[in-house]
Design a protein around this nucleic acid. Structure first.
Lengths: 203, 203
DNA sequence: GTCTATACGCCGATAGAC
DNA sequence: GTCTATCGGCGTATAGAC
């Protein structure tokens, strides 16, 4: 805790990150709590508690609650980029899409309790007056574009429309899974989507 | 959607309804404002203003905000019942389903601004601790069951799965239309669903 | 039945000690 | 950089006049 530990990690101190990584913890806590409770119901005290950071200290890292929301949206974007990056290790675009769907289905229990982590956030942000809904749209657009890229690689001329269809199917089955609290919906629809992708890849 | 609230209803004064129908106005205002702003962001003052009822007077009709939410969910259920009732005037189940989809597409501008009136409400209620999420599930279930009934009438043994697929498609395209603020998504996906229904009806 | 005035708690944000 | 104490505003709900 003292100045003595200063030298070691200093190599090229990431602008913000300090020992403890409180900022990172606050962002992660925001993503999680926003998902579980919704943005509007969540207080800064909730986030601080989950992040294990004193309430008042939050304001050293984020001047307003909105900035926390913005950071959460950015975190979703980063996660998406990381995910698609990993999927591109697979050589076959159809396999990438099926792996994407498979990942969604694996999260079915969480989806049944809290919905799609990003979809529910985007829906909520669209009803606020701040400009965060634009950032949310960007993330959604990035997902659709990546999916469209895969369909394009499969030689489908209607790649964009198919991408909208796939992402909409995911958002829709998330809403139903959530509202009806039934993870089996996710499983069944996931299987349907997988067959659908297969059919499109090998017509 | 807006059904009978016509004059001759005084015949046997409905328990609550008084001159002016303040209670009805409060419920209608709740449905509308919850849709446009979300439940959490909405204050009783907002509802009172839209309903043109003095703020303090709200509590004569509803003891808590939760009761207003409950009444709004009930109103959605009533609207759904009225809608499906009207659709059943059509002799062909496939026509009923296509008319259902057509109605959704007609609301695309509203969907782009505020999302599906019921889907966004259900999503929000699922993140509250009150028990209203169960009531929301009931309404969603009623819609799915009615759709399944139509597919059943078309002789499809997989009617229930098809119904989940159709309703999920609607919820999903609503989320995307809303997040991307693009009503064209609703139009395109609506056409796709219409063809899909045709294909299922005349294999 | 209708409406005003107000109590009360909670939450976002700030000031400033350390 | 870290944390405590606290302010100001708002929103739900109530008391009680008309």
């Amino acid at each position: 805790m003292t100045d003595s530990e200063a030298g070691a990690v200093r190599a090229e101190a990431p602008r913000r990150a300090r020992r403890g990584g409180k900022r990172e913890r606050l962002v992660e806590a925001s993503v999680r709590v926003f998902h579980e409770q919704g943005v509007e119901k969540t207080t800064l005290a909730d986030i601080a508690r989950v992040a294990d950071v004193p309430v008042g200290n939050v304001y050293y890292y984020f001047k307003t609650k909105d900035q926390l929301v913005e950071a959460a949206v950015q975190a979703h974007h980063d996660r998406l980029t990381a995910l698609t990056g990993r999927l591109e290790a697979l050589p076959d675009p159809a396999d990438r899409l099926k792996a994407l769907v498979g990942g969604w289905v694996e999260e079915r229990e969480t989806a049944a309790r809290f919905g799609c982590p990003f979809g529910t956030l985007a829906t909520e942000l669209d009803k606020r007056d701040d400009g965060l809904d634009l950032a949310a749209a960007e993330v959604m657009r990035a997902l659709i574009d990546w999916v469209a890229g895969q369909f394009g690689a499969l030689g489908r001329p209607d790649a964009q429309a198919l991408a909208v269809e796939l992402v909409a199917a995911y958002q829709g089955m998330s809403v139903l899974t959530h509202t009806l609290r039934d993870p089996a919906i996710m499983t069944a629809q996931g299987e349907r989507l997988t067959s659908w992708i297969d059919g499109l890849a090998h017509p």
